[in-house]
């Protein structure tokens, strides 16, 4: 009964990877991230020459190109941080729920954070970045607990179908609450809309800074929970018999995931599907060992978000396409592919 969920990539060949292969992939992913970060600094409505890039990185703002580079530094950093947070939080959520479809946006956790922030703006005059952060994290935590609880009621525990439906239904409910809160307040609706669409475009060092402590703590908790998640993957009974305190391990990991996802949502608005796509992709590269999977998910998540940001700047020139829209367009077909690959029985 506890083994109703089968990881899509748990074929014998992919479970174990030699550490040499993993190290090679690690170097490759780090290299890719560096290339993408430089691209993100160079590409935009104004392309920048190499000399101007170097000058801009040193802080010089002598001409427009160098000023553009200086302007793009914080948004690149924010894309890296938010991508890493979302990728890592998705990987942890998939581990905690042992569910291949878990993701902050599918479980409605993003929307919970949104409702908390919107309510804060509308009713409690919330306007500081730190205020947004606490509200978003509280909203994310409440929603995560709620969705997981109602999704795991009844026969078979938290099956992917029940969790996904509970998440989708809760999101739908939260969206109508958001509309009801925001609609009568014409004066702040522009404020709320710009936050909801969010993205990484308007980043500055001032907006990144309050998020950093949450990001660091969330990362630390998530990475420390890797061993516990490895035990949980064996099933609750086996994990308990191996000496793992199942409930504690699960709660500890979930705290990390919620911190990361809430902080990312508070700064960049709801961005979907990064947490879904990235861990699946990483499992192909490094196998299912969480001690490797979690850091890889963080790095790959950062790559994906920087990539989406760059693409958004290229295809909609001179305007920009919000990253959240692009990640959903990339992620939803991926979601459908996972659903199609799963055995119906497992769903």
């Amino acid at each position: 009964m506890t083994q109703t969920i089968q990881r899509p990539d748990s074929g014998v060949a992919t479970v174990r990877r030699p550490n040499r292969v993993r190290l090679l992939w690690l170097i490759a992913v780090l290299g890719l991230l560096a290339v993408l970060a430089v691209t993100s600094l160079v590409v935009g409505s104004r392309d920048v020459s190499f000399d101007d890039l170097l000058a801009g990185l040193r802080g010089s703002m002598d001409n427009l190109s160098q000023a553009a580079v200086v302007k793009r530094i914080p948004r690149t950093i924010l894309a890296v941080i938010v991508g890493a947070a979302l990728g890592l939080s998705g990987a942890v959520m998939q581990g905690v729920t042992r569910n291949p479809l878990a993701d902050p946006s599918i479980l409605g956790v993003n929307m919970g954070a949104s409702l908390a922030v919107v309510t804060g703006i509308a009713w409690f005059g919330l306007s500081t970045a730190t205020g947004y952060l606490w509200a978003a994290i509280a909203g994310a935590a409440v929603t995560a607990v709620f969705v997981y609880t109602i999704g795991s009621l009844g026969r078979g525990g938290a099956t992917p179908l029940k969790l996904a439906l509970a998440g989708a239904a809760t999101s739908a409910a939260l969206v109508s609450f958001i509309t009801a809160v925001a609609l009568p307040r014409g004066d702040i609706s522009a404020n709320i809309r710009s936050w909801q669409i969010g993205g990484v475009g308007g980043a500055s060092f001032d907006s990144i800074q309050p998020m950093l402590p949450f990001f660091v703590v969330g990362c630390a908790i998530s990475l420390m929970s890797a061993r516990g998640l490895n035990s949980l993957a064996l099933g609750d009974d086996l994990a308990a018999s191996l000496g793992e305190r199942v409930a504690v391990a699960r709660a500890f990991a979930a705290v990390g995931a919620v911190l990361l996802c809430g902080a990312a949502t508070a700064v960049a608005g709801p961005i979907g599907f990064v947490g879904l796509v990235v861990p699946h992709f990483c499992r192909l590269l490094v196998g299912v060992d969480q001690r490797w999977l979690l850091p890889f998910s963080a790095l790959t998540g950062a790559c994906l978000l920087v990539f989406a940001d760059v693409i958004g700047r290229i295809i909609a020139r001179p305007a920009e396409l919000d990253v959240g829209i692009l990640t959903a367009l990339i992620g939803a077909p991926f979601f459908i592919a996972i659903v199609r690959r799963q055995k119906v029985r497992a769903l």
Binding site: I106, L161, G272, D322, A328, F335, V339
Partner: peptide, 18 residues
């Protein structure tokens, strides 16, 4: 499967609307 595919499609279309 129909339900889950539908949820995925819905997410994608919502981003198009946004």
């Amino acid at each position: 499967r129909l339900i889950l595919v539908g949820i995925g499609i819905a997410a994608m279309l919502e981003s198009v609307t946004n």
